[in-house]
Every structure is written in C-alpha cells, then in structure tokens.
Simulated scan of single mutants.
Amino acid sequence: MGIKIAIVEDNITFLKQIEKLIKKDDKFTLIGTATTGEEAVKLIERGGPELVLLDLSLPDIQGTEVIRRIREKKIKCNFLILTVFEEENSVLSAVRVGAAGYLLKGTPYRKIKEALLEIHAGGSVIQPNLARTLLNIFMEQERLKTEVKPLSKREKEILNYIAKGLSNKEVAEVLGLSSTTVRTHLEHIYEKLNVTNRVEAVTEGIRQGLIDV
C-alpha cells in the first residue's frame, strides 16, 4: 500500500487530472478528494491521509484555515500547497500555520511526486521562483513590526477606552481632555501601530497585549 494522500481542489478539471496521475502511481494510495474546505476537514478527519495536496482558494474557507483546523485537532498529516503567483500572501500564511511546502500550479507531475516524497520523508519544498517574492513579503512585514513605536501611557489609556466602545467625546470627558486632543492621540496610535482605523487599532492592541481583556 502506498502513501495515503488526499487532494483538495475546487477546479474540477485540474482535480481530475491530478487524481488520474495519483491513482496510476503505485507510490501513493488516494483516500479521497474534496472541493471545499469543509469537505477537506471531514475527509482528513475520516481518512487519515499522510499527505494532502491543497489548493488555497476554496469556495468556502481558505486552505490556510483547513491547515489551522487540522493542526488544532492534533491530526498528523503534511500539506503541500498548489498555488498561483497571485496568492503569495496566502502561501506565506499557510507556511506559518504548518504547510510543509508549496509548488506552482502547472508544475509537472514528476516534480509534484518528488515534492510529496520529500515532504513525506520529513523535508520541505519551496518553488524557487516564488521563494524570493515570499521572502520579500516576509521581510517587509518583519520590518514594519520592528518599526512599531511604543505607546505612551496616555495613548494606552485612550486605546483601552476605545476598546470598551467609548466615542472620542466620551473618552475626552473621562480623561478631562478636548475631543481634538483625543483625536490627535488616536492618530498617533494609528501611526505607531501601523493601522488605519479603530477596529484595527483595537485588534493590534490586543495582539500586542496593550489592552486589558
């Protein structure tokens, strides 16, 4: 019996092509296919594949969410992402949550097979012509993180009140400030947290542990 594999792909034509090749290959045993993320989670839970060929752009939930759910359930399997150039950010997210590698759609089956065997052996696979783009995205995101400036005591106070749902006017009344001053502090908060609105500011504040929840 070959390595147990599942295929998750919503493009039926591509799915049938790769399914046919996998079925003909005695290195693998196809345990099933899925065309949506929800189907994929159920298939992986039920079938216990060792490897999953996963499309990121699914009609219900993203492939990244599929990986996250499977990791949360402590199910052991490895994911190889099949992607297109337009999905660099999604690929980066998938790698961060546990994908073992990624290839561009259109990669010859021989290369896909090599990648699957490499991942099954404990390795990882990176498509060279995507790697530099992803590295640049990662470095830019890390640069933005390192450039985040610490909030002042007053700015933290205001951010916490905003998180509780208070308006600028209400925050001003509580702190004995003018609405204009509160608005100015908010602009500084947005700049320091690298966000553009109150919702993003609160979300980032929670992530950084700046807000009492």
Rank of each mutant, 00 (worst) to 15 (best):
N197C: 09
Q17V: 10
V171S: 07
K20V: 07
L80C: 07
T64R: 00
L159N: 02
L116E: 07
K4P: 10
H120A: 14
T180S: 15
S179V: 13
M1W: 02
I189Y: 11
T29M: 13
K145R: 13
G205T: 06
F79L: 05
T35N: 12
A94G: 09
N11F: 13
T36L: 08
L130N: 03
I67E: 01
L186I: 03
L43T: 10
N136W: 00
G98H: 09
L130H: 07
I162K: 09
L104I: 13
K145E: 15
E200Y: 11
K156L: 07
E157P: 02
L116S: 01
K169M: 12
M1E: 11
E38P: 04
E45M: 13
L58R: 08
E173M: 08
R110S: 14
L51T: 03
A121E: 14
T13G: 10
V84D: 09
N129H: 09
S124C: 04
R71Y: 00
I5N: 12
E39H: 12
Q62Y: 04
M1K: 11
A115N: 07
E39C: 08
E147G: 01
V199L: 12
I18N: 06
T35F: 04
S178D: 11
E86F: 10
M1C: 09
T33M: 01
T36M: 07
E9K: 07
L51I: 15
R46Y: 08
N129M: 05
R154M: 11
T64W: 00
P150N: 06
I126K: 10
K153G: 00
K27G: 14
G122S: 05
A99H: 12
N11I: 12
R207G: 01
G165R: 08
K164Q: 15
L166D: 08
L103A: 06
E187P: 00
I189E: 07
P108T: 01
R96Y: 02
N197R: 05
Q62L: 03
Y161H: 15
Y190V: 01
E118W: 00
E170W: 00
